[in-house]
Amino acid sequence: MSLEQLKAFLAKVKGDSNLQVKLKAAKSPDDVVGIAKEHGHEFTADKIEELSQEELEGVSGGGISHVGGDNMCTG
């Protein structure tokens, strides 16, 4: 459940438009964790908050644009 797992998942997302669509539909960090687990990556929702805004914006050209508290906005 590491930050490295989250970064590996985000790298996978960059090249997978189906995953990008799923993430854009995610309503919470826990939704993202569930999607990642379906694709073989395990980390906790708190790891998402450890990433910088720049790292998050790099996913699908800004697919995840803001994470804060219990809310995650997609762009």
Rank of each mutant, 00 (worst) to 15 (best):
K37L: 15
Q20P: 00
I35W: 04
E57S: 14
F43K: 02
A11R: 12
P29S: 04
K24L: 09
E49R: 08
K7T: 14
D31F: 02
E54H: 14
K24A: 10
V32N: 04
M1N: 03
E38D: 15
E42N: 05
G68F: 08
G69R: 09
L23V: 03
K7C: 12
S17Y: 03
A36S: 13
D30Q: 13
E4P: 07
V67H: 03
A36P: 04
L6T: 10
V13D: 00
V67N: 02
K12W: 01
K27M: 03
V21Y: 00
A26S: 06
E50Q: 10
V59A: 12
G15E: 13
G62A: 06
K27I: 00
K12I: 06
K27L: 02
A36T: 06
P29M: 01
E55L: 13
G75P: 08
G61F: 10
G34T: 07
T74P: 03
D46F: 11
L6W: 07
V67D: 01
K14C: 15
N18K: 11
G15P: 03
S65T: 07
K37G: 13
L19I: 03
Q5F: 10
Q20E: 06
K37P: 09
F9A: 05
F9Y: 07
L56M: 07
T74R: 06
D30M: 11
G63R: 03
Q5A: 15
F9I: 10
G61A: 10
G61H: 11
H39P: 04
N18T: 07
H39D: 11
A8R: 05
N71I: 04
V59N: 09
E50V: 04
I48Y: 02
L19D: 01
E50G: 00
G63A: 13
K47R: 12
H66D: 15
H41F: 13
L3R: 14
G62S: 08
E49Q: 05
V32M: 06
E57Y: 11
H41T: 03
D46H: 11
I48Q: 02
D16G: 00
M1Q: 02
E55N: 11
Q20A: 04
D46C: 08
D30T: 09
Q5N: 15
G69A: 05
G61N: 15
M1V: 03
G63D: 09
S60P: 07
A25W: 01
A11D: 15
K7V: 15
K37A: 15
T44E: 14
C73Q: 12
E50P: 00
L56C: 04
A45I: 00
V21M: 01
V67I: 10
D30I: 09
N71W: 01
G61L: 10
A36W: 02
I35K: 05
G15Y: 02
E54R: 14
Q53W: 12
G15C: 05
Q53K: 13
S65A: 07
T74K: 04
D70H: 07
S52Q: 13
D30A: 10
K24M: 11
L3T: 14
S17P: 04
Q20G: 05
S52N: 09
K12R: 10
